[in-house]
Every structure is written in structure tokens, then in C-alpha cells.
Design a protein around this nucleic acid. Structure first.
Length: 499
RNA sequence: GCCCCCAUCGUCUAGAGGCCUAGGACGCCACCCUUUCAAGGUGGAGAUCAGGGGUUCGAAUCCCCUUGGGGGUACCA
């Protein structure tokens, strides 16, 4: 058997969708596992809805995911790659033209001059009669004279493909045998608009054939359209490829995942700080499983184990909680240098947004990694976690300083004591191992619960009740700033408990 | 409406006739660890395998019906 060729054919009518990313991933996994070729083709024939910005978002997203294509369109100044260029449909118009001429000449397709109004009226009538909507065939058997008359009226005519009669059957790799009677296709369908631009069902077939795609792997939403494609492949004399229809990714209510009900843009997940490893890992496990109990898998692990025949038939609800768990797993697996590189843009974003006052150095971030990595559900959580380290002034309610078992006077007394010990420790060595026994002994001497004392200090130096371990936090802050913040807290307590 | 597809814990799934009194993971609940929050560890609740008929010595696994859900029905992709 020749080398398998799979493709992802996104349409730039919106930002990269999670569903498209998943389909791309499965095509990539299949191609890599089989030693085949992974192709990217831009389906940009919908000029009304498409845009270059979306195109860039899609390409960037696929690159970010690590789904590099062997053949694909020119991008960012780089030339198209592959023997079947161009890889964007608006550049392939002559091919569709040639194919449609062929169908027309063989009377496998015909010109249709129906107006939108006429078609709309047909549809309404059918609806009223409780009949399935279908093209009535008004132009299916026009005489040359009738055609000439309509052309003379200035009508250009769309091109309709004759679907004929019979049953189209195919063996879908994930669904098994599928049979659909042609009579359910809605009648002869348009393959070229009256303005001359070709439609999806047509171009997808012409291109898949031209690019010698051997496996069409796409979402289940295309299952019902597949007979149209098969009919076209046959009419054009092309070999029909293998099909594999993937289960859909669902909203929590089990409808097809949509922007309306879920976060569908890959760029939004990137912006939140999900890492590619986690998203790839998560997406691969939606509708497919290794058959083992392993859950945390690298893309290479997945490529090795992936089998299209093991893909599910039923749809899968997108579960963000599970994605977050995997994200944490992967964040903890990243090498320090790598993690720092990935964290930096998020810290920069916090700076730009005014959430912090200055940019920490890489070394400062590196020092934080041991206590921070296990507390990051996403990279974007970094500012929320330790942003207090990089601000000039803390803002919090003084009442927050008082542990629940204490009153303001006790808290003030404790902070004064802690301030003295910490200031003193700084003269020797400002390290977690030095600080802890000193403060523990303070609590012990006064009969305070260490948790209460530590909490008061925690709030005083961070402004919050949930933070990384206190002593690591103090060290990160540095002696001078720690003392300064303790002084600030003691002062803030004046309003609650005058000295 | 019509056509097509699907159906195991709340969610993602293991399961391809006996290994299943249905396993794992997320989430949830306890406990342990512990200065908070996490992470980690241990344990627990949670699915009569949508329901009903068959086939079989034996069915989550095969067949049929019902129900439920989804997708498709454009001069969108």
C-alpha cells in the first residue's frame, strides 16, 4: 500500500476552534503513526465570512499545538511546501473550473437559473406540505432554447450536480458500514455559485483527489454529506478515499460544542496559560483511549499508540476540570528553563495590565519554581499566586490581618514580636531554615498557636490568606521588604487596636 | 418533518460472550501530610452497563424493538 495521506482543511471563517484542533490532531496522529503525510489546506472559498486574521489565528494555533504539516500553504513569507501547491483554494480556482466544465460537458451537472426567491418559495411549500426540503428540479431538463432565454435575461446560473438514484454505501473506519439512499440528499445540489465561485462539497472532492488524499478524517457532522462527496468522486472519475468520521466534542448539554455555550477558541486557552502538551493530551483522549490506564501522555507516546480503529462513535463532553488537571500535570513536568520561558509572557501581561509594578528577573522566577509549580493550574495564574512580590504597595483590608481566633491587639503584639525577630534574623542569614525556628519559638514563648502567628505574618507580607509556604515567601520578598511590610501592617492595625 | 449516527459512574473512559459482585481518571467527600493554599498519599460515595425482548450453558459485550440523545438536511464550511 502506498503512503497514507491525511489532511486538515480548515476554513478561515473564525478563530481556530477546539473541534478543528482535535480533528487536525487526529489527522496528524494517524499520519505520523502510519508513517504517512499530513497536509494542511485552507478552504477559503467563503470570501464573505473568511478573513486573513482568522487564517493567521488558525495557522498560529496549529503551530502552537506542534501539529506541523508536511505539505501546506505559504505562511509568513515562507513558500508553500509540497508537490500539490497551491494549498489554498482561492488559488486553485482553475482546477475547479476544469472539473465543473467536465461535469457540465458530460451532463452530470447542469445550469440552474432559479432565483433565491423561487427556491425560498419551494422550501416554504415543502415545509407546509410536511415534505423534506429538496431541489424540485425546475432547471434539470431545460432545452437549449429555454437556457438561452434565461441567459438572455442576464441570469448567469449556478451549477447543479445530478445526484441520480440509488444507494451510496461506504465503510467508515470508525462507524462501520453506512448506507444512504440518494433520494435523501435533498435533490441536485449546487456545486458552483452563480457568481462562479465553487462550493465546499465540490472543492473538497476536487482537492482531496488532486492532492491524493487517501484518508478523509473529519467530524461526524460531515457523515451525512459523505454520499454527496462519493457521488462527486465517481462522477469525476476519481478514486474514492477512505473515510473516518470522528465523534463530536460536546457542550455540557451534549449538543455540538459551540462558541455560544463553551469556550471554543484555542487562542483563549493559550491566553489562559494552558500548555500545548496538556491540550494535545486532553484532546487525544476525547473519543480515543490507549486501552491502558495511562492518562498523562506526550504527543510522541500518543503517536506511537494511536489507532483510528479504536476511536469511539459517541460524542464526548468537553470537561474543563479534567483539562486543568492535565495542565497541572504537565506544568510540573516541564524543565525549569522551559517553564520560565513559558511563564514570562504571562508575567509581562500582568505588568502591562498594571497588576504588578515591575518585571522579575528570570533568576527570581527560577527561585520560585519549586514552590510555585505545584500551585499553578494554568500559567496565567502566576500573577495571582505571587504577584504580591512585584508590587510597591499591598492593598488589603486591615481586618484580614487578624486571625479568626485572635483580636486586633493580640495580632498587633504578635506582629511587633515577629518584626523584631525577623529584623534580627536578617542580620545573620535570611533563609527559610533560619527563620522558621525563630518564629516557632516566638509562638511557643507567648503561648500562641503557630498557625495563627504565621497567618498574621502571611497576610502582613502578602495581603492574602492563601500563599506559597510562608518562609519561602519571606525569603523571596527579602529582608528589607519583609520588615517594611510588617511595619505597614502594624501601622494598619492602629485603626483597629490603638497602641 | 425526513435521513443518518450514537447510547458503561456527574464527566472522560477500560471492556471486543465467561477474567465484571463492571476497572481507571477528573470532579466530589473523608483521613494522612501540613503554617495557609496547593501538590502528594490512603480510603469512600458514585453505573441494576438507557429500557424491553431474544440468541446462548452463560451477555455490558451478538440480534431485534422501544426510548433518549446528537448530527445532517444552504448559491456556509
Amino acid at each position: 500500500m502506498s503512503v497514507p495521506r491525511a489532511r486538515i482543511a480548515p476554513s478561515p471563517t473564525g478563530p481556530l476552534h477546539i473541534g478543528t484542533a482535535r480533528t487536525a490532531l487526529f489527522n496528524y496522529l494517524f499520519a505520523r503513526h502510519e508513517g504517512g503525510t499530513f497536509i494542511l489546506r485552507l478552504e477559503d472559498t467563503d470570501q464573505a465570512r473568511g478573513s486573513l486574521a482568522y487564517e493567521k489565528d488558525i495557522l498560529d494555533g496549529l503551530h502552537w499545538l506542534g501539529l506541523d504539516w508536511d505539505e501546506g500553504p505559504e505562511v509568513a513569507g515562507e513558500a508553500a511546501r509540497g508537490p500539490f501547491a497551491p494549498y489554498r483554494q482561492m488559488l486553485r480556482l482553475p482546477l475547479y473550473e476544469e472539473a465543473s466544465e467536465r461535469l457540465l460537458a458530460a451532463d452530470l451537472a447542469y445550469r440552474c437559473y432559479c432565483t433565491p426567491e423561487e427556491l425560498e418559495a419551494d422550501r416554504k411549500a415543502q415545509e407546509a406540505a410536511h415534505l423534506p426540503p429538496r431541489y424540485v428540479g425546475r432547471c434539470a431538463a431545460l432545452t437549449p432554447e429555454e437556457r438561452a432565454a434565461r441567459e438572455a435575461d442576464g441570469r448567469r446560473g449556478a451549477l447543479r450536480f445530478r445526484v441520480g438514484t440509488g444507494v451510496v454505501a461506504f465503510d467508515d473506519i470508525v462507524r462501520g458500514r453506512v448506507e444512504i439512499d440518494v433520494s435523501n440528499l435533498g435533490g441536485d445540489f449546487v456545486i458552483v455559485r452563480s457568481d462562479g465561485s465553487p462550493l465546499y462539497h465540490f472543492v473538497v472532492v476536487v482537492d482531496d483527489a488532486a492532492m491524493q488524499i487517501s484518508h478523509v478524517i473529519r467530524g461526524e457532522d460531515h457523515l451525512s454529506n459523505t454520499p454527496k462527496h462519493i457521488l462527486l468522486f465517481r462522477a469525476l472519475g476519481y478514486q474514492v478515499p477512505e473515510f473516518a468520521h470522528l465523534p463530536l466534542i460536546l457542550n455540557p448539554d451534549r449538543t455540538k460544542m459551540s462558541k455560544r455555550k463553551s469556550q471554543t477558541a484555542v487562542s483563549d486557552y493559550i491566553a489562559e496559560g494552558f500548555v500545548r502538551e496538556a491540550l494535545v493530551n486532553y484532546l487525544a483522549l476525547l473519543g480515543w483511549a490507549t486501552g491502558t490506564e495511562e492518562e498523562v501522555l506526550s504527543i510522541d507516546d500518543i503517536v506511537e499508540k494511536f489507532e483510528l480503529t479504536a476511536v469511539h462513535k459517541g460524542g464526548a463532553v468537553f470537561d474543563r476540570e479534567r483539562l486543568e488537571w492535565l495542565n497541572g500535570q504537565w506544568i510540573r513536568r516541564l524543565e525549569p528553563d522551559d517553564l520560565i520561558d513559558r511563564l514570562r509572557p504571562f508575567v509581562e501581561a500582568d505588568l502591562a495590565a498594571g497588576r504588578i509594578d515591575w518585571m522579575p528577573t528570570d533568576e527570581e522566577i527560577r527561585a520560585l519554581l519549586p514552590v510555585v509549580s505545584e500551585r499553578l493550574p494554568t500559567l496565567g495564574a502566576i500573577g495571582d499566586l505571587v504577584g504580591f512580590l512585584w508590587v510597591h504597595e499591598l492593598r488589603y483590608e486591615p481586618a484580614l490581618l487578624v486571625p479568626k481566633r485572635w483580636d486586633a491587639a493580640t495580632t498587633r503584639e504578635a506582629l511587633v514580636g515577629a518584626r523584631a525577630r525577623i529584623a534580627e534574623a536578617g542580620a545573620v542569614a535570611f533563609e527559610a531554615e533560619e527563620l522558621e525556628p525563630v518564629l516557632r519559638s516566638l509562638a511557643e514563648a507567648r503561648g500562641w498557636k503557630v498557625g495563627d502567628l504565621f497567618m498574621a505574618i502571611r497576610v502582613a507580607v502578602t495581603g492574602r490568606t492563601a500563599t506559597p509556604p510562608l518562609f519561602d515567601t519571606l525569603v523571596a520578598l527579602g529582608h528589607d521588604r519583609a520588615v517594611e511590610r510588617l511595619d505597614g501592617a502594624i501601622e494598619a492595625l492602629e485603626t483597629l487596636a490603638p497602641a
